Amino acid sequence: MSTTGLPTQIWLTLLLSGGLAGLAGVCKVLGPNSQLRPSISPGYGYTAIIAAFIGRLNPLGIILSSLLMAVLYVGGELVQIKLGLPFALAGMFQVILLFFLLAADILIYNRLRVR
């Protein structure tokens, strides 16, 4: 047992998964040109936060919500190309989805009662 109460296997798993995630990030950043660029992140981290919240931190739910977010992202690119609308429209759909989910949580967990 370690000092925090977590077994050694859990710590090793956390370190290994973090290292693999870092390696995947390096591969993404280096990309096909094999060089670093000044603008490396198109905002995938914010999309991942929304996907994790929509998936309710459940592994299967996160996979399904990630697919939904990917469809919104690719659909936004397609709308930009075909219709000439701004790409920020896809981000607006993601934010609207998150706000409606937050509003539903607030209304469910904090019921207003009329006396």
Rank of each mutant, 00 (worst) to 15 (best):
M1V: 12
L107N: 11
F99E: 05
A21Q: 02
L57Y: 14
G31I: 09
V71K: 07
N58F: 09
G45H: 02
G84E: 06
A104H: 10
V114C: 01
A103Q: 09
V95H: 06
V95T: 13
A104I: 10
L57D: 05
N110V: 04
L102Y: 10
G31T: 09
K82S: 10
V95S: 12
F53M: 15
Q80P: 00
L102M: 15
T47N: 15
L101M: 13
Q80D: 04
G19L: 09
G22F: 05
Y46F: 15
L14E: 05
G75H: 04
A52T: 09
A24P: 03
L15V: 00
V26M: 06
Y73F: 14
I81L: 12
T47Q: 14
A104K: 10
W11G: 01
I96Y: 07
I62L: 06
I108T: 14
S17A: 13
Q94S: 11
L72S: 01
N110M: 09
M69G: 01
L101V: 14
Y44D: 02
I10N: 03
C27P: 00
M92H: 02
G45C: 08
G75M: 07
L16Y: 03
I54N: 00
L72D: 03
L14P: 00
A90L: 08
P32R: 13
L36I: 02
G18A: 13
P38Q: 09
Y44C: 06
V71A: 14
I62C: 11
A52C: 11
L15D: 00
A51I: 00
R113T: 15
M69R: 04
G61C: 13
P42A: 12
L64A: 10
A52M: 11
R111M: 15
G61Y: 10
V29F: 04
G22A: 08
T3A: 14
R113S: 10
P32E: 10
Q94H: 12
I10D: 09
F87D: 05
S41Q: 03
V79I: 13
L83Q: 06
A52W: 02
A48W: 05
L98E: 00
I63H: 01
Q94C: 14
M92Y: 09
P32W: 07
S41E: 07
F87V: 13
A70F: 14
G22Q: 07
F87N: 02
N33E: 02
L15M: 04
L23R: 05
G76S: 02
F93I: 05
E77D: 08
G61T: 07
P38G: 07
